[in-house]
Each structure stands twice: as structure tokens, then as C-alpha cells.
Design a protein around this nucleic acid. Structure first.
Length: 479
RNA sequence: CGGGGUGUGGCGCAGUUGGCAGCGCGCAGCGUUUGGGACGCUGAAGUCGGAGGUUCAAGUCCUCUCACCCCGACCA
């Protein structure tokens, strides 16, 4: 059992890491997986970081049901068209054929819409800012652990507002929240952008995305935020009386981040040794490995470990002692590196003697990442600083790698050449049509990931059509 | 749905012209080990994906079938 090199077979590397780091396992049902405790803890930390931000921006959690009447989906034409192919539908309940089939939610705009129409009467009821943590089901043809599974966990925020402007502000606010989480917690640099019409959410006016780059140069949509206009308000009759006693439709939004984010963390940071977790999200931030040769050393070393443990716990560090007696220290070093633990503390007889420890950092493999003779006194302060440094370094590395793999091209020939030789993100001025976009996808397997928001690049010539435009697009092969 | 592949102890695999079902890892017990993936000895564990057929004899040959994996079309 081991992990294949990324350069040799990236998608096998990904599956190897998930297996070796004990994150998840395929279930007996095709396309669905069991998230194991270590992987789930990682997800729980993702949840915690997002949930805190949702609360800070005024949202409350609630829970809406798993089953949705089929007729609800059908109320919004684009929505049903988009989701119909991937619905799981319940037609039998309690041994009886159901009068109306129930859809296992693929997303919850419709049931939220139905309830919101009952809850909103006056402008005083607005805005409505609700999030839910839930599982959803989409019948996928091709699946990959975390990146695309038939059932996945996510949060979906659904909000209703009095005006288009407020709803658009909310959409962009949540996009910022996602970007902030990705950058500061997951240490993944992301590009905020708007989706093309072809790529946008079924039923949305506009879809926004944070696009991240994985270790192989492929793009991964890591979070989305949709401005739904009054499409769902009209479909579900979400109306209110405004200050002038006039009936108005609400403007709604929805936004989601899923367990796919775990896949993003794996692929944005992992190396040939396995997982590399950003300290903010790591279930175990520091692992302590005791080392002894002779029996009499054992007690001293473990006592020393306890002192380390106590000090780090006191400082709020998530620390674990690996006191397994049936494994050698060398095995444990490799094991925890594979699992991506950011910092390792090694405690042996020599450290007991000198009242110190050895510190090893995951982002610098081998002897380079080791500090010897680190005094026990003040260790927690030093470790916390090191965790911060590792967090920053992972972000810096991922950013540098993304910049290195982002290319500007001026012609379609160059586009194809770069895509085949180098891959990564390709930045272009873009004035093409839906049909042009479809053709590029067909010919190159690259898709238009987004039109980046924060790029005042000025006018330029569209690489495909030759038209002058100020619109910029990023194309890439994507998961 | 199209193309390719695989089903044999828990996992990864080998199994020749059909002739006693094996190897590595893991697992259990005991002992020696432990500063970068330790070693020895002993042991447990398999209706060979399923059904049918050919044969004195099938993991192996034939027919049917099921499942899973990989590559495409759909997608957070």
C-alpha cells in the first residue's frame, strides 16, 4: 500500500491519498461513499469555519425536508430542465404507489420557495436569511470521492429580499464569505467570477463562483452563489406589500459549498507523500511521537510527552499523542505525514536529557523541516507561530503554483497549444457566443470557468473572434 | 449509453497443456526490537462474483448473467 506519484497518475494519486489518509471509502452503492472519522472531522472543521461566517453575516440555520413533491420542481421551467436528468424519485411508500412522486432533494430552492411564500407578507418580513446543512442527491453518471458523489453533504443558503439590489448584494456578500473561507481557512487561493450563461445554475439570473486550481492544473468550482432574480418568487408566489402598499415579488438568492471542498483541500495542497492539511482545518494540528530504546527510558519519555501535551492543549492546539507500542517511530513519522498533520513533535531520551523536543513541519519534508533542541519552555508559543507560518506557506505555495500555471493567450492556436503542453488556467479577452463556447469545449475539453470580477484589465482583442472587448475569461479543464 | 478492463483469504495479486488453491501485505500468539516505513518463529483465515454446461476431473474450457473499476457524453 502506498501512494503513486502525482506526475505518474494524478487521479490514482488522489484515490490513494484518500485511502491512505483514511478519509473515506467507497460504499456498496455505486457512486456513494462512507466518510470516515478523520475525513469527517476535516469536514466538520470546514463547516465550523463557514457556519461562523454565516452567523456573522446575519444568517440562521434551519432544516427543510429531504422529500420534495415532484410538482414543486416543475414550477420553474429552467430549474426542472436542469435537474430532471439527475433526480432520484420515490414512487412507493409503505408498500403503496404514491399519488405524487417525491423527489429526493437535489437542492432546495423549491421547498424554500414554497415556505417563503407563506412566511412573507410585508416588507417588514424581509430580508429572510436562512441556511441549512443537509445532504442532497444527484444521480451522477461518473463519480469521484468528495468531488462528485451521488449523495453529498453541503450547506445551502436561501434568502429573500425586497429589491434586486439587496439580493445582488447578498449574492456577492456570500461569494466574498466563501472566498474568505477558502483563502484564510483552507489556504486555497480562489478566483471570484461570474459564470457564463451555459454554466450557470438552472433557474438563476446569474451564478457566481470561486474557482480554485488543483495540483494538476485543473479547475475546481469550490463554491457558488446565485442571484435568482424573481424567477422563484414568481414560480412560488413569494410576494409582499411594500411601503407604498403595492404588491411586489421578492428577489431571492441561494449559495452552497459542499464536501467537494474536502477534495479541493486534498488536491490543492497534497504532495507525493500524501495529504498536507492547512492548520486551521486539520483535525490534528500537532502529533507527538515518543521514542525510546530501553525500558527505563519509556516512563521518562512518556512523562515528557505529557508535559508537551498539557502545554499545547492549554494553548488551544489540537494535539494528539501517538503512544502505539506496536509501531516504530519511523513508521509513525510516515503515517502522520501521509495524513497531513502539519506539525510533529518528536520526544526521545536525548530530548528528556536536554528538556527539549524536536519539531518537524509537514510543509518542508525531511531533515530540512526539522528543528532540533527546541526548549520545552515556551513551546506552545513557538508551535502556534509555526502553525501560522505553515498556514501562510501553504497559501503562498498554492498561489505561486496557480500563477505559474496561468497563461495569457492571444489566439485559438496558442490556446490549444498551451492547453495540451502546459494546461492550467488560460486567461483571454472574450467576446464569443454560447455556440463559440460550446465549440471550444467540444474541441479542447476546456470549459469557460468564469469571467473574473476583479480584473480591470481594460480592452483587448478576443482570442477567438477578434472583436475588441473589455470582458476577460478563464478557460480550463475542470472537475 | 458507447469504448476498455477486472472479479481468487481482510487488501493487493499469481495460478502454465484442465490434475492437492498459492504468494506479498495485513491479522492473532510469543520473543527480540524502537531517533525516518523492524525482524524471527508459530498460527487463523478462501462455496475462486453467480447460474448452467463440457469432462473421470474446471479457478482454468463453453454459454448466459451480475457487479465493480477506468476512458468519454452530464454535473456542486
Amino acid at each position: 500500500m502506498s501512494i503513486v506519484a502525482r506526475a505518474e497518475d494524478y487521479s490514482r494519486w488522489y484515490l490513494d491519498v484518500i485511502r491512505e489518509a483514511d478519509l473515506a471509502e467507497n460504499s456498496p452503492v455505486r457512486g456513494s461513499m462512507v466518510i470516515k472519522p478523520y475525513g469527517f472531522e476535516l469536514w466538520e472543521n470546514v463547516k465550523a469555519g463557514l457556519d461562523r461566517r454565516f452567523k456573522e453575516t446575519g444568517h440562521q440555520n434551519a432544516y427543510f425536508p429531504l422529500f420534495i413533491p415532484m410538482s414543486f420542481l416543475q414550477k420553474e421551467a429552467d430549474h426542472v430542465k436542469g435537474f430532471a436528468p439527475e433526480l432520484a424519485v420515490v414512487t412507493i411508500g409503505g408498500g403503496e404507489q404514491l399519488d405524487e412522486p417525491l423527489v429526493v432533494r437535489p437542492t432546495s430552492e423549491t421547498i424554500f420557495g414554497y415556505m417563503y411564500s407563506r412566511w412573507v407578507q410585508s416588507y417588514r418580513d424581509l430580508p429572510l436569511l436562512i441556511n441549512q446543512w443537509a445532504n442532497v442527491v444527484r444521480w451522477e453518471m461518473r463519480t469521484r470521492p468528495f468531488l462528485r458523489t451521488m449523495e453529498f453533504l453541503w450547506q445551502e443558503g436561501h434568502t429573500a429580499h425586497a429589491t434586486a439590489q439587496e439580493a445582488i448584494e447578498e449574492t456577492l456578500r456570500m461569494l466574498d464569505v466563501y472566498a474568505d473561507f477558502a483563502i484564510n481557512d483552507a489556504a486555497i487561493p480562489v478566483i471570484k467570477g461570474v459564470k457564463s450563461d451555459r454554466e450557470k445554475f438552472a433557474g438563476a439570473v446569474n451564478s457566481y463562483t470561486i474557482e480554485a486550481m488543483m495540483g494538476n492544473g485543473w479547475a475546481l468550482q469550490s463554491g457558488t452563489s446565485h442571484y435568482l432574480g424573481d424567477n422563484f418568487a414568481r414560480a412560488f408566489d413569494i410576494k409582499f406589500l411594500d411601503q407604498n402598499n403595492e404588491m411586489q415579488y421578492c428577489h431571492t438568492t441561494s449559495w452552497g459549498v459542499s464536501t467537494r471542498m474536502v477534495g479541493a483541500v486534498i488536491m490543492a495542497h497534497g504532495d507525493d507523500q500524501g495529504l498536507r492539511l492547512p492548520p486551521v482545518l486539520a483535525p490534528i494540528q500537532v502529533v507527538v511521537v515518543p521514542i525510546w530504546r530501553k525500558d527505563h527510558e519509556r516512563g521518562q519519555v512518556l512523562a515528557h510527552c505529557d508535559a508537551v501535551l498539557a502545554q499545547l492543549k492549554e494553548a488551544g492546539v489540537r494535539v494528539k499523542l501517538d503512544a502505539r507500542e506496536d509501531q516504530t517511530p519511523g513508521f509513525k513519522f510516515n503515517d502522520w505525514e501521509m495524513r497531513g498533520v502539519p506539525v510533529r513533535v518528536e520526544v526521545g531520551p536525548r530530548d528528556v536529557q536536554s528538556n527539549a523536543v524536536v519539531l518537524a513541519r509537514r510543509d518542508q519534508p525531511g531533515r530540512d523541516g526539522k528543528q532540533f533542541g527546541v526548549p520545552l519552555e515556551g513551546l506552545a508559543v513557538r508551535v502556534r507561530a509555526l502553525l501560522k507560518e505553515i498556514q501562510d506557506n501553504l497559501l503562498a505555495q498554492a498561489t505561486a503554483s496557480r500563477e505559474e500555471q496561468t497563461t495569457r493567450v492571444a489566439s485559438y492556436d496558442e490556446f490549444k497549444e498551451v492547453l495540451d503542453s502546459k494546461g492550467g488556467f488560460i486567461r483571454v479577452h472574450w467576446a464569443g457566443s454560447d455556440a463559440d463556447e460550446a465549440r471550444i469545449q467540444e474541441e479542447t475539453r476546456a470549459t469557460l470557468r468564469c469571467l473574473p470580477l476583479d480584473v480591470p484589465e481594460g480592452e483587448g482583442v478576443c482570442f477567438l473572434t477578434g472583436k475588441v472587448t473589455d470582458r476577460v475569461a478563464i478557460f480550463a479543464r475542470a472537475y
